[in-house]
Amino acid sequence: MGHVFKPSTIPTVDEYVSGLSALGSRINELQLRLLQEQYYAPNRTVTATQLAELIGIESGRGMVNLLYGRLGRLFCEATGFEPSQREIGTHRWWSVWSSGYEERNPYRFFWEMHPEVAEALEALGWVTPERSSSVTFPDEVDETTVFREGAVCKVSVNAYERSPQARQRCIAYYGTSCFACGFNFGQVFGELGEGFIHVHHLCPISEIAEEYEVDPVKDLRPVCPNCHAMIHRRSPPLSIEELQILLSSSKVQPPPNNSGAAD
């Protein structure tokens, strides 16, 4: 093992919780997934290349380094925390989240998540100690909260940010049964499938191509991956009503929908 770097000061769990909460919608979906995938990695240790592969960032470790460091900088700006500096005076923004060490032959640089970060992610509900099929997002959202979505993040193509809070709010209202066909993963697969569902934007944000206010109840619907895939088999996408007509004309009869309160 080559050089090992551990920052001299690390925020407390409470400071991480407070800082991450303060960032709110400034954390984009890819940055959130970076922390989640690292949390679930063996020993919470990964390289930037491994994270790129896990998340599907085709432009590789360069983009991961940028997103990971930018998130560290956002945290420092929100909290006033001063990260470690190199001898030349530049900041190690990544050290907000991890210690680092290098291996040679072949050369690889690893990030090892600070235990305080892992505990903060658990406290926020952004991860679960026992990994499940779906990611748990924050759900303590005020009724009057305005969710904003659609800010473009350049990866290898334009990927539009999605609010995890809006996703959770949609699920809290409609439940985890597919709005189109009624399928419920928890009922079929038990604990393994509990809580797993996709969330579909009735108006694709890729068509809007700008930031907009999303109403989790009016603009989003929970759908199973099969129905979600079929909805997007056409451009413009099928409406849920059109998909239900296709389902009703086939041999598969969807269970009745509960379009009101959650399960």
Rank of each mutant, 00 (worst) to 15 (best):
Ile10His: 03
Gln168Cys: 05
Arg33Gly: 06
Pro225Glu: 03
Glu143Gln: 13
His201Asn: 01
Val214Tyr: 04
Pro204Cys: 06
Leu23Ser: 08
Ile88Cys: 12
Arg233Lys: 12
Ser235Phe: 03
Val146Pro: 14
Val4Met: 12
Met1Tyr: 08
Leu66Pro: 00
Gly19Asp: 07
Leu121Asn: 08
Phe196Lys: 00
Ser249Thr: 08
Ser248His: 08
His198Thr: 05
Leu23Asn: 02
Ser163Phe: 05
Pro129Ala: 08
Asp215Leu: 01
Arg221Trp: 00
Phe196Val: 13
Arg221Leu: 06
Tyr40Leu: 03
Arg61Gln: 15
Arg92His: 07
Leu246Lys: 02
Phe109Val: 11
Gly72Arg: 06
Arg44Cys: 14
Phe81Pro: 07
Glu116Phe: 08
His91Thr: 14
Arg221Cys: 04
Gly89Gln: 02
Val4Asn: 06
Glu191Cys: 00
Ile231Met: 12
Ser25Asn: 14
Cys76Tyr: 11
Gly62Val: 13
Glu119Met: 11
Leu74Ile: 07
Trp93Cys: 07
Ser8Glu: 11
Asn105Ala: 10
Val223Tyr: 02
Leu32Gly: 15
Glu122Cys: 08
Gln187Lys: 15
Ile240Glu: 00
Ile55Pro: 09
Phe183Gln: 05
Gly56Phe: 12
Ala48Pro: 01
Ser163Ile: 12
Phe179Pro: 04
Glu211Met: 11
Gln165Pro: 09
Val199Gln: 03
Ser206Lys: 13
Ser18Phe: 00
Leu34Gly: 07
Ala229Asp: 07
Phe75Trp: 11
Arg92Met: 10
Ile27Gln: 10
Thr49Ser: 12
Gly89Cys: 04
Arg108Asp: 01
